[in-house]
Each structure stands twice: as C-alpha cells, then as structure tokens.
Write a protein that binds this DNA or RNA. Structure first.
Length: 479
RNA sequence: GCUUCUUUAGCUCAGCUGGUUAGAGCAUCUGACUGUUAAUCAGAGGGUCCCUGGUUCGAGCCCAGGAAGGAGCGCCA
C-alpha cells in the first residue's frame, strides 16, 4: 500500500480508510500513543497501539528518534488533542535509535537552548522549531521566484567565481588551485597567478549586481538568487560569511519605481507566509510569546510575530531622505540628552543606534531612507542633481536593521568614469560594465535583499545562524 | 577586530566568606499504572566543576594565561 504523508492524512484523510504512514517517533506515551512526524507538517499524527496484541520486544524498539512505518485504520480520536488518529494494525521498525545515545542529542524530549541546537545542526531539523523555520524558508524562496515570474522577470544566474574586485562590498574569499606552501613565484617574489587555474586571481562573489545589470539592459527585468560570500570578520547575530541574496535589476526604473518594487515585493513575501505557513507560523508565534514572558516588561516586543507581519503587510513603509533623517535625529530626545554613542551630523554613515531610533521609536514601522551622501555609498549609484547625494535607498526593518540596500544606477558614461576614478576602480577591470553605458544606456535601478534577514523577520528568530541550515561564520564551518 | 558576560551531570541551572561525601529540575534506565497530550507515581545510574599554571593546610569558589560560546559594537545584506 502506498505511503500517505502525515499532512495528507490530517487534512484529507477519511475516517474508516486504511493508511500507511512512515516517520520518526517524537514520543511514545503510556506504551500506547505514538506521536509520529514525517516533516510534511509541524503536526504529528497519533498512532494508537493495543499493546496487549503486540510483541513486547517490538514495542521496546519504538523510542524517541526511531523511524517506523505503521499500518492501520484512520479513526476518530477519543482523546482531546487531535481529531483523528491511526488505530495500529501493523508496525515495522525502519531504523532504531538507542535512547542512551538519543539522550545526548537535541532529540532528547525536552526544551533546548538555541546554542545547543546549533552545535547539532545535523539533527536540529528534527525539532519543531527548526522544522518550522526551514519549511518557511522554502516557502519564502518559492514566493520570491513566483513574485518575479508573475511579473515577467527572468531568473539570471550570475557567476559565483568572479574575477572582478570592483563591487567594493567587502573582503573576498580567494579561490585558487595553487599549492599554498610552494606557489609559483614571479621574479620579484610575488605569486604568479598566470599559473593559477583561471590565469589570474579570482574570488567568490560578494554580489551579482554588476552582472545582473548587464542582463537587465537587454532582458528588461532580471533577478539573481544565489549564494554570496563575505570574508569579513563579523561576529554578530545578523552576519554570515555565506548567505543568500536576491538582486532584482530593472531597466527604465528610477528610484521611486525601485522603492515601489521593493515595498510590494516585501509585502508579497509576508502575505505569502501568512497565507501558506499558518501552522508553522502559529507555532513560532507561540514559541516567541513564551520566550517573551521570561523577559522584563520593557524588553518585550509590543506586537506578536503574527501581528508584526500583518502590520508590515497593511501599512505603507515610511519614506524619507537621509537629510530629513539627520534633521529628525538632531531634534530627537536621545540626541538632545546625549544618549547616542556616535555623533549625528550630515555626512556621517548612520549607526545602528540611529537607525533603530528611527525605525523603532520615531516611526515604529519599516522605513526607506533615500538620497545618501555620495561619499558613503558605492561608485555605481546615480549622482543626484545637487551634486552631493546619490539615488540610494536602504530599507530598515524593526529588530533586523538594514534588510535591503539598493539604488538607481549611474547610467551616464562620463559621470560613471569619473566615479571610477574617484573610487580608485581601474577601468580595465570593469570595461564590460562601462561598455553598457556606451551602447544605448538607459536609467535603471535595483536592490539586494538579504534572504536570511528576511527569514529572521518572518520567523521571529533573532540569530541569523538559526535560519540557515548550516551557518558559515568566522572560525566555524562544521557540517 | 573591540567591549562585556558565560563555561559545574545528557540538557538547563543553583552552589553561602575558600572548609568534610558537589545539588535541583528535566532527560535516561528499572518498576508501577494505562485514553495519553511536556502523561503520572516510586526508585536507580550519571561529574576531567572548560584547560594550564599559581596562591593556600585546603580551590568549583581567589589570581594569571589560554580555549570555546553568547550578547552588544564596527563592517554589511
């Protein structure tokens, strides 16, 4: 008989029918009630055993963590916690799990710290929390592809190994096949990269944006969705050395179009999760609520996870310029009381404390800041007419900080060449990028969304290492 | 990279002014019970007190150095 998934049995199963369900045992209570989970839903199915009719040695092997197949009739449950359950007629042990060893793992049926779960990333999928997080992670990835596909975007695969060091987005990981102990040397003692695999130094990508622009300037609208690597020694709950980024790029869009696209995109993702991940979201909502109870009143979230998602879905993002933001900060209470650690004045890069004040105190909703000073933003951002600022935008989310960074791109050949000079970027390194400005250049714009930061927002997880299956961070590449 | 906190049983933690045999809850095991929902009740086993060195009659506790982890900051998405 064909196996039914737990979610099928719970949603479409008809009472009286025979079913086969396979999964992992979460709990075996009273020698009678097996809680079985197969990953298709956060919910377990209860399989009820008349232990008088089964071999005691067989029942002994039904332990937390073991894998079994049960055959039986789907019946209405006599208990309160579930509508239906399986009256077991046959049990097959698929894989044993020794309780003494299970006890040392995160499968041990008790509450665990996230730190302990992180040390067992290979087993944390078995827990309710991480099951929910990774089902939602999938749903968000799918929603992103669906959003862009429905709007006529093309998914463009930009290179992971890149020879250009021009993005300026951060430190890069060198990729080489040279012998690290005895590399071939030039006469002056430097490494001879002509003998390396690609004949020159190459790195893992820090951004697919420049290549995405090339695609957009022919295909019209494209997006990338791939792994991104930053060799920064960042030790925070918001940074990974390997993360996933989505970078749409649209020809003929200006900064306003870019903001509109960003806002509808983020709201679409939130709506998709609210609509399609109800069970997992309800669990994470409850989980967060319980966690909040252990915190002092003033550190608790004002809204629950689901309320926060609904709030973002229903309310317009607050849009203001960098210059307006600086004015607001200068008039703010914490500034006047000297409570900011970092000074505020036009021209500075906003610090976390400033962004948090704007997002969490002043507006209490997502904020889009635009038109930053040119000096603190990348070379490819379009120069505004004031000569001082560029058409940049950062989207700031409560609790997460910067979730999107984007801009209208500099499409004027001469201006871009000047910017390259000012930023010390050699033309011969990005001649291909500059050429698009020579042949039918047009205004265009795009942005980058940190995928994991978005997952943090929709799951309520507060450490980025808990929303990617196998986190890579400084000094940690286990699994 | 900087600041700060933590490290004691499988997990989460307590451990008094430095003093005899290091504790609790949960988990595991054994037994009882059997329509349970984090099942319940009784009992048992389980320790390199992170590592190295020092002070002391005596160190889980004090001092020095190191390691690992968390949080915050910087860099950024």
């Amino acid at each position: 008989m064909k196996r039914s998934k737990v979610i099928e049995v719970l949603t479409d199963g008809s009472v009286g029918s025979k079913v086969v369900v396979k999964g992992w045992v979460r709990a075996f209570r009273s020698n009678r009630f097996i809680q079985l989970n197969d990953g298709s839903t956060i919910k377990n199915i209860q399989a009820v055993v008349d232990f008088e009719n089964f071999d005691e040695a067989l029942l002994k092997r039904i332990t937390t963590g073991s894998a079994i197949a049960v055959t039986g009739e789907l019946v209405e449950s006599q208990g309160a916690g579930q509508a239906v359950e399986i009256q077991v007629e046959g049990i097959e042990i698929l894989g044993d799990a020794n309780p003494d060893e299970v006890q040392r793992t995160v499968m041990q049926p008790k509450r665990h710290s996230l730190e302990f779960l992180r040390e067992q990333a290979h087993l944390r999928f078995r827990t309710n929390t991480f099951g929910a997080v990774f089902r939602i992670r999938h749903a968000v990835a799918y929603a992103i592809h669906k959003f862009f596909n429905d709007r006529g975007f093309y998914y463009l695969h930009t290179p992971i190994v890149t020879g250009s060091d021009a993005e300026g987005a951060g430190e890069m990981f060198r990729v080489t096949t040279l012998d690290p102990i005895n590399p071939p040397l030039n006469e002056d003692g430097s490494v001879n990269y002509k003998e390396d695999f690609f004949g020159k130094p190459v790195n893992l990508t820090v951004s697919g944006q420049l290549e995405a622009e090339l695609g957009a300037l022919a295909l019209g609208q494209v997006y990338t969705f791939g792994p991104t690597f930053r060799a920064e020694n960042s030790n925070t709950s918001r940074h990974l050395a390997e993360f996933w980024m989505i970078e749409p790029e649209v020809a003929f869009n200006d900064l306003k179009d870019n903001m509109d696209l960003t806002e509808s995109f983020l709201k679409y993702i939130v709506d998709y999760v609210l609509e399609n991940c109800k069970d997992d979201l309800a669990f994470l909502n409850e989980r967060e609520a319980n966690e909040q109870k252990t915190k002092p009143q003033n550190e608790r979230n004002e809204m629950s996870l689901i309320e926060r998602l609904e709030f973002v879905s229903k309310n317009d993002f607050k849009r203001l310029t960098y210059t307006e933001a600086i004015d607001l900060l200068l008039q703010s209470k914490p500034y006047k009381k000297g409570q900011f650690k970092f000074d505020v004045k036009w021209g500075i890069d906003l610090q976390s404390e400033h962004e948090r004040y704007l997002v969490e105190k002043e507006f209490n909703c997502p904020v889009i800041l635009t038109d930053y000073p040119a000096e603190i933003k990348a070379f490819y951002m379009r120069q505004n007419d004031d000569g001082k600022t560029v058409a940049a935008m950062d989207v700031l989310f409560p609790g997460i900080g910067e979730i999107v960074g984007g801009s209208q791109r500099e499409e004027r050949f001469d201006v871009l060449k000047e910017k390259c000079k000012a930023f010390d970027i050699h033309e011969e390194e990005i001649w291909w990028y500059l050429e698009t400005r020579k042949f039918g250049t047009v205004p265009h714009a795009g942005f980058g969304l940190g995928f994991e930061r978005m997952i943090m927002f929709v799951t309520g997880m507060t450490n980025i290492r808990d929303v990617i299956p196998f986190p890579r961070t400084p000094q940690n590449a286990e699994f």
